[in-house]
Design a protein around this nucleic acid. Structure first.
Lengths: 210, 210
DNA sequence: TATTTTCCGTTGCAAAAGCAACACATTATG
DNA sequence: CATAATGTGTTGCTTTTGCAACGGAAAATA
C-alpha cells in the first residue's frame, strides 16, 4: 500500500530531462509559497519539513497541515473558498519541486520520461495525502482536548510502533495543530500525567495505558 | 478544474465490458459498507447521498464525511489507525460501485476499456476529494461554534452562488458534522439571528452580512 | 559568552460549550 | 388516520475551554 516509488532517485533523471528551474531550496522560516497568488500550483516536498499555516481574523494561528518528505501541497488541493491567507513555511531546510496543474495532469509537450513516471505515481502520492487528511479529520472531530491529545499520541505511537516517542512538534505548535488554546492544552497535559495516562520526559511521551 | 468526466454515461459501457456484480443499490438507512472488514475497498457513489459516520466510546455520533454523486469513499482512504467503527449509511437510495485497490491501481487483466477510462480519470476524482477534505478541515479548525456555522454557511453560499440556500442536512446532522453539541449549536444559531447575521426560514438560510 | 527570542509551565477569571431535560412540531409508518 | 419516531427549539446548570498574564527554562543569535 505504501509508496515504493523513490522520488529522490527519480529526480536525478529529471534534472536533465525537464525544463526550467522548477526545483528550489528554502531555509528555515522562509515562505515556500502562499495559496493566494499561485493558482493551480502543485508542489512536492523532496526534503525537509514545512507547515501550511493560517492566521485568522482573531489572530489565531492554525497549522493546517504538516509536510515531510514526499508530501504534496499547493493550491490545486484547495478551492477558492477561504478568506484567510494560507502560507507554507519551511521548518527546516527544504527542497521543493514546483508544478502547475497542467504540467502534471496533461501530457508533457516533450513527452519526457519525467512526466510519464510522475503521472503514473501520482495517484498513489495523492492517495497517501488523502489518508493523512482523514487522520487529521479524525483528530479534529474529537470533542475534547483530552481526546485530541490521546488521539494524537495514539497515532504517533502506531506510526513509530512504540509506546514511547518524541514529539515532532513544539507544544506550541501541537496546540495550533490540534486547534486548541495552548494553556488549556498544557493544563490537560498535566491532568493526563496526574491521571496516569502518560509520562512526559522532555520531548518524549510515554503511553502508560492498555 | 472540475470533473467533466461523465460517470453515468461511462457506466453504460461498463456494465457489459467488465466482470461480476460490483454494482449495488441501497435503500435509505441501509449500511453501504463498514471500514473494518473490507480491507482496501474503494467505492464510487453513482447516485444518491450517503454519510460516513462514527460512533465514539462516549456515544457521540460524528458525520465524518458526506457523499454525493461521484464521491469516492472506502477503506483505501484510511489507514488502520482508528479504534472506532466507521460505517457508510445511505441517506437516500444509492447506487454504488465497489472495487478493490488492486482492481483500480493495477491494470485490469482483461485490459478492458472500463478500467482504462477509470484510471485516466481517477487522479481528478481523487483531487476533488482532497479539496473536499481540505474544506472540511478548514471548518473543523475554527475555534468557536459561531465560526464553524458561519464558515459552513459561507461554503454553501459560494457553492450555490447565492446568499440564500437550503441546508442539505437536518440540524441534528449539521451538529454532528461540525462536531459540536446540538443544543449549543441551536443556541448559537439563535444568537446569529438576533445579531442580524442570518435569517432562517424553515430549512432555508439567508446570509445578511457583507 | 551575553543577550535576545522563543518555548514551557502555571494560574485566576471569564466565556463558551456540553449535558440533561422537556414541550412541541414534523415526518414516517403500521 | 393514529401512533410512533425523529427533529426542533429552549433553558438551567456544570464543565471545559479560552484569555491574559507572568516567571523561568531553553534555545537561538550576536
Amino acid at each position: 500500500m505504501n509508496t515504493n516509488f523513490d522520488l529522490e532517485n527519480f529526480i536525478l533523471d529529471f534534472s536533465n530531462s525537464c525544463q526550467k528551474k522548477q526545483k528550489k531550496v528554502f531555509g528555515k522560516n522562509e515562505v515556500v509559497t502562499t495559496y493566494i497568488k499561485n493558482r493551480n500550483q502543485l508542489c512536492i516536498l523532496l526534503d525537509g519539513h514545512a507547515d501550511l499555516v493560517r492566521y485568522d481574523l482573531n489572530g489565531n494561528r492554525t497549522i493546517v497541515e504538516h509536510f515531510s518528505k514526499n508530501s504534496l501541497f499547493g493550491e490545486v488541493f484547495y478551492t477558492i473558498t477561504t478568506n484567510n491567507e494560507l502560507l507554507v513555511e519551511a521548518k527546516s531546510n527544504c527542497t521543493v519541486l514546483f508544478y502547475t496543474y497542467d504540467d502534471i495532469f496533461h501530457k508533457c509537450r516533450n513527452n519526457c520520461k519525467f512526466h510519464q513516471t510522475l503521472s503514473e505515481n501520482l495517484p498513489q502520492l495523492i492517495l497517501n495525502k488523502v489518508t493523512d487528511l482523514n487522520m487529521r479529520i479524525e483528530l479534529l472531530t474529537k470533542r475534547s482536548t483530552r481526546d485530541k491529545l490521546l488521539g494524537y499520541f495514539s497515532l504517533r505511537s502506531t506510526r513509530t510502533l512504540s509506546k514511547s516517542f518524541e514529539l515532532p512538534f513544539s507544544l506550541t505548535d501541537l496546540a495550533d495543530y490540534l486547534s486548541v488554546d495552548r494553556s488549556a492544552m498544557m493544563r490537560e497535559l498535566k491532568l493526563l500525567k496526574e491521571d496516569g495516562f502518560i509520562e512526559k520526559i522532555g520531548n518524549r511521551i510515554i503511553l502508560l495505558y492498555k
